[in-house]
Nucleic acid binder design. Structure first.
Lengths: 116, 116
DNA sequence: TATTGTTATACTCTATAACTATA
DNA sequence: TATAGTTATAGAGTATAACAATA
């Protein structure tokens, strides 16, 4: 399943779901389409994903206009993000600890350069 | 699909299939189980994967004893690897070119440290 | 008794097409 | 006319269980 997946499993979250939560935290203007485009998830597949998060009480769909709706964290979702954020940080720290110190500071800049 | 996948598509190879070919090239002692373990592919899922490669004439199943069999490149498979190897090299070079020079030499050592 | 290769199958994830309503 | 959300469904990929044969 992957290490991060295992860390998130006790929280009943998949990696993609956590990615959505991270992306929307502190914002209230992101639509499902925008999130999907950024995370490379098809519009159609965003629907069941957001439905799961909504059923879990972690997000709300907040109308922007008659066509679009912002995906925002609920109060419960905000609270959950303290746990989820810590797990993600723990995961990233675990990865970096395996990297020899002389290479460590170069890893994230290098990866960021590749992704964009 | 992913960049490497797109590069390999004209060769009618998936990334996992190419990974198997790379792994067995120059060797004649690797079993399906060993390959699967190294590439994180279930034993059961190795069967159709190897069947595809065998149908394409790229590999042979070579008995080791009554239970195990080595997966080896056929002559056709060896020839194909010159093309596939070039495509993989092209892909990796493309990735590295995006990385700023000062970070470049640190990327592979850092990633290798993470995977093991 | 553990391992290899295999079969069959369930499950998850992703992709595609089409539809409605709104910008 | 293009876009957002949605539905339904097909397809690819992965996981699980069980089996026979052999180490």
């Amino acid at each position: 399943m992957g290490e991060l997946g295992n860390l998130l499993e006790p929280e009943n979250l998949r990696v993609t779901e956590a990615a959505v939560l991270v992306m929307i935290q502190g914002r209230s203007d992101l639509t499902a389409s925008q999130i999907g485009k950024a995370l490379d998830i098809q519009r159609a597949n965003m629907v069941p994903l957001l439905n799961r998060l909504e059923s879990a009480g972690l997000i709300r769909r907040q109308p922007i206009d008659g066509k679009s709706q912002a995906v925002v964290l609920s109060a419960e979702g905000e609270a959950k993000m303290t746990v989820v954020g810590a797990l993600i940080q723990q995961f990233e720290q675990g990865l970096l600890e395996r990297v020899p110190p002389e290479h460590r500071d170069h890893l994230l800049p290098a990866l960021n350069a590749i992704w964009k």
